[in-house]
Simulated assay, not measured.
Amino acid sequence: MTKTFTFAILHFSVAFTVTYLLTGSIVIGGAIALIEPAINTVVFYFHEKIWKRFENKQLKPLAA
Rank of each mutant, 00 (worst) to 15 (best):
Q58N: 14
G24H: 13
V27C: 02
Q58V: 15
F44N: 12
R53G: 00
W51N: 01
K57H: 15
F46L: 03
A64P: 01
K49H: 01
T17N: 08
T2Y: 03
E48T: 04
N56S: 12
V18H: 03
S13F: 06
N56Y: 06
L59V: 14
I50Y: 00
V27S: 12
K49T: 02
I50G: 00
T2A: 05
T17Y: 07
A31R: 12
V42G: 05
T17S: 09
A38K: 05
K52G: 01
A64R: 14
F44M: 09
F44I: 08
F54G: 01
L34A: 13
A8L: 08
I26P: 04
L10T: 13
Y20D: 08
F16H: 03
T17D: 06
L10W: 07
N56K: 15
I50S: 01
L34G: 10
T6R: 14
H11Q: 07
R53W: 00
H11K: 11
P61E: 06
L62D: 11
K57W: 13
A8E: 07
G24I: 14
K52S: 03
G30R: 12
T2C: 01
A15Y: 04
G30Y: 04
E55H: 08
T23I: 08
Y45M: 07
I26R: 12
P61K: 13
W51H: 02
F16C: 01
R53F: 00
F44A: 09
T41M: 07
E48R: 05
M1Y: 07
L62E: 11
P37H: 07
F12E: 10
A8W: 02
I26F: 05
K60Q: 15
L21F: 11
W51M: 00
Q58F: 05
I26L: 09
K57V: 06
T23D: 11
M1G: 15
I9P: 01
S13D: 05
I28S: 11
I32M: 10
L62M: 09
F7G: 01
L34S: 12
E55Q: 15
E36C: 01
Y20A: 06
L21D: 07
A63R: 15
F16Q: 05
I26A: 08
W51P: 00
E55G: 05
A64V: 03
G30W: 04
F54V: 08
A64C: 03
M1K: 13
I39Y: 02
L22M: 11
V42H: 09
A33T: 14
I28Q: 15
H11A: 03
F7Q: 13
F46M: 03
P61T: 10
M1E: 11
P37S: 06
I9T: 12
L34D: 05
A38P: 00
I39G: 02
E36A: 05
T6Y: 10
T23W: 08
E36Q: 07
L10E: 09
L62I: 09
L21P: 03
I32E: 04
K57T: 14
F7I: 10
H11Y: 04
Y45G: 04
N40T: 02
I39T: 06
E55F: 04
A63P: 00
S25I: 13
I28T: 15
I35C: 04
T19I: 02
Y20S: 03
F7D: 07
H11W: 06
K57D: 12
I50H: 01
Y20I: 04
I35A: 07
K57R: 15
F46T: 06
I39Q: 08
V27W: 11
R53M: 00
P37C: 06
H47A: 06
Y45H: 07
